[in-house]
C-alpha cells in the first residue's frame, strides 16, 4: 500500500513536471513496450487520435449513455506498442491487466466525455475505459466489467 502510494506520488511528480513543461497538463502516461516510452500525453494529443462514439449502458449507472473518445487499438498503434496485454491503472490506484486481444476483438475506447460532457476527476474522469457492452452479450459479464477502469491515469504495455 505504501509502495503504491509512493509510486503514485512519483507519477504525479512526473505529471506536474510535464504540466510545467508543456502548455496543457498531461492526462495519460504510457510506458512499457512502446517506441520512445514512457510518454506523457495531454488532451490535445489524445484528441488528435480518431474520435468515435459508443452508445452503451454501464453497470454503475442507469440507462444508456453516449461516450466519446478514441479507440484503444488506435492509441497502441500510434505508439507502436508491442505487448499482448495492457496494465491499466487509475488515479485511485486501481490496477487491472487487460489482454490486448480485447482491443482487436471489440471497439474498446478510452472515453473523455459522457453525453457530450467532459468527464470530471471528481466523478469518473478524466478518462474511462469503455467496452461496447450493449453490442456484445459476451461483454455482459463481471470478468469484463472489472476492466472498465475509470479515472484512468496510466497504461503499461507488457
Amino acid at each position: 500500500m505504501r509502495r503504491l502510494a509512493i509510486k503514485s506520488l512519483a507519477i504525479l511528480a512526473l505529471w506536474a513536471s510535464q504540466a510545467v513543461a508543456g502548455d496543457a497538463p498531461a492526462v495519460l502516461r504510457v510506458s512499457g513496450q512502446i517506441a520512445n516510452g514512457p510518454i506523457l500525453l495531454d488532451f490535445s494529443q489524445l484528441r488528435d487520435l480518431p474520435q468515435i462514439g459508443i452508445e452503451t449502458s454501464t453497470v454503475v449507472t442507469d440507462g444508456t449513455h453516449r461516450f466519446t473518445g478514441f479507440l484503444m487499438r488506435d492509441l497502441l498503434e500510434h505508439l507502436d506498442a508491442q505487448g499482448d496485454r495492457v496494465m491499466a491503472t487509475g488515479l485511485n490506484d486501481y490496477v487491472v491487466d487487460i489482454p490486448a486481444s480485447d482491443f482487436m476483438q471489440f471497439d474498446v475506447i478510452i472515453a473523455h466525455s459522457m453525453d457530450g460532457k467532459a468527464l470530471d476527476r471528481a466523478d469518473k474522469g478524466p478518462l474511462w475505459i469503455i467496452y461496447p457492452r450493449d453490442d456484445h452479450t459476451e461483454l455482459q459479464d463481471i470478468r469484463y466489467d472489472y476492466r472498465w477502469v475509470w479515472q484512468l491515469s496510466e497504461i503499461e504495455v507488457k
Binding site: R121, A122, K124, W150
Partner: peptide
Amino acid sequence: DLLRSRFAL
C-alpha cells in the same frame, strides 16, 4: 476529488 467521485458513484 477521488472521495467526491466515490460519493458520485
